[in-house]
Amino acid sequence: MKKYSLYLTLFLAVLLVACSDDDADLNVAINPDNGGPISEIPSDPERVDYELFSVNDSGVSGIAAFIPNDDGSATVYIELENATQDIHPARIHFGSIEESGSVAISLNDCECKISETVVTRLDNGAAITFVQLMQFDGHLNINMSSSDNTVVANTNIGANAF
């Protein structure tokens, strides 16, 4: 598990330093085992991936990976496709997409089409674990910008995804 966390950390470090408009650059990191490139996030059989669907004719899609951590918390990793290089707020809301509930967890904004947040608590301070997130009655929204709350991509998560 720690090996995958190292790969993910290295992947994000390369992206933050080399953020550009070229989508091909977003999927390249260095594999420390053989020095070669990694074309995607290493697979972890315990992670749960949710496909982000385009909303409001934005063309933005992507993936939200919920990855369990050794301490029981979860890392939420988001990678957007067809998004601008702008800052895109990411939030987990209560209820399904159709119910459009209030914000439950404010995630780190997507910068250079990427976001990574370790989740241990809801915004109201209540503790939440990876297992509880897998049962959570919620959905994830990606917004256009900090000043424009138009949803550009979303997905149901937890109990609503099944």
Rank of each mutant, 00 (worst) to 15 (best):
D23V: 15
N141F: 02
V76I: 15
G36I: 05
G158I: 00
D86V: 04
E46G: 08
I67C: 07
V151Y: 02
A90F: 07
I92L: 11
K113T: 05
D70R: 11
S100Q: 15
L122G: 06
D123E: 07
Q132K: 13
E81Q: 14
I157H: 02
G158R: 00
V55L: 04
D44A: 06
A153R: 02
A90M: 03
H88N: 11
N149C: 00
D33S: 13
A161S: 14
E98N: 15
L140M: 09
S61D: 06
A83W: 11
D25P: 11
H139E: 01
G59E: 03
L133S: 01
T117L: 00
D21C: 06
V119T: 14
I114S: 10
N141R: 11
F94M: 07
G35D: 15
I114F: 08
H88D: 02
T150H: 09
I87M: 10
R47L: 05
L12R: 10
I157S: 00
T75N: 08
G125I: 01
C19Y: 06
I105W: 08
V152R: 03
D123Q: 02
S73R: 13
A127L: 14
I142Q: 11
L10G: 09
S39K: 10
A13N: 04
F53T: 07
G95R: 11
G101P: 14
S102E: 15
S100Y: 10
I114G: 00
D123F: 01
E51T: 14
S146L: 08
A159V: 13
I128C: 04
G59S: 02
S20K: 14
D49T: 07
F11M: 11
N149G: 01
M144N: 09
L6W: 10
L107M: 09
G62F: 13
D22W: 12
L52E: 04
H93E: 07
D86W: 12
V60P: 00
C110V: 05
P45F: 04
N56D: 12
A153N: 01
C112D: 00
V17Q: 09
A65P: 00
V55M: 05
R91A: 07
F66P: 05
I78F: 06
L140S: 05
N160T: 04
F136M: 09
P42V: 09
D71A: 12
R121L: 03
H88A: 14
E40G: 13
T120V: 06
V131F: 08
I38H: 13
A13P: 06
N31Y: 01
A104K: 14
S73L: 11
G59F: 01
L12A: 05
F11R: 12
I128W: 08
I38R: 15
D148R: 02
Q132R: 12
P32I: 10
V48W: 00
L122D: 03
L26K: 13
P45Y: 03
V55E: 12
G95C: 01
L6K: 10
N149A: 10
A127Y: 04
F162Y: 07
R121M: 04
N141D: 15
F94C: 04
S102I: 02
L133A: 00
N69V: 04
G35T: 12
G62Q: 09
A126W: 02
P89M: 07
V119S: 01
L52I: 05
K2R: 06
Q85E: 15
I128E: 01
N31W: 01
E111S: 12
P45V: 09
L16A: 06
I67G: 00
G158F: 00
V28S: 09
S102D: 14
Y50A: 07
D137I: 09
F136P: 08
A127E: 03
S39A: 15
H93L: 03
